[in-house]
Simulated scan of single mutants.
Amino acid sequence: MTIAGGIILIMLGAILTWAVEFDIAGFDINVVGVILMLGGLVWLLFALYRLRVARRVVQPPTTTVIEDPVTQRRVYEERHYDDPPVV
């Protein structure tokens, strides 16, 4: 619940701030709505940062050199981290 959680908090805060007319002694529902909107904004920005950092990490491909002594050839095998293992 990364981006969706932040958007939900922002929506709940907006509803509490501008659409709800509810009074309890010593409890301001508008302030709670603003706090939820700010928390949702911080959550959304943090989620976007995490997604950007997670997509930046890339593993380099693995290269294996196999030398055949009979034919004097070299075979290069390049595998990426998402390839299935060779049996």
Rank of each mutant, 00 (worst) to 15 (best):
I7N: 09
P84E: 11
T63L: 11
A47E: 03
T64V: 11
I10A: 01
D83R: 06
Q72L: 07
L41F: 01
M11C: 05
Q59Y: 10
L16R: 02
G39F: 11
I66Y: 13
Q59V: 10
R56G: 00
M1R: 06
Y49V: 15
L38S: 12
D23Q: 06
I15A: 03
V65P: 06
Y76L: 14
F27G: 08
I35P: 00
D23L: 04
E78G: 01
A14Y: 04
P69K: 11
I3E: 04
I35H: 01
I10C: 00
W43Q: 12
V75E: 15
V20R: 00
R73Y: 09
Y49D: 13
G33Y: 01
V32T: 13
I7F: 09
P61A: 04
M11G: 05
Q72M: 14
D23P: 01
M37H: 05
W43T: 15
V31R: 10
V57E: 15
R55P: 13
R50Y: 00
G33T: 02
V20N: 14
D82H: 13
T17Y: 07
G13H: 00
L38E: 02
T64Q: 13
V86N: 12
I10M: 03
I3D: 12
M11K: 02
L9E: 00
P84R: 11
F22D: 07
T63H: 06
F27K: 08
L44C: 01
H80K: 11
G5P: 08
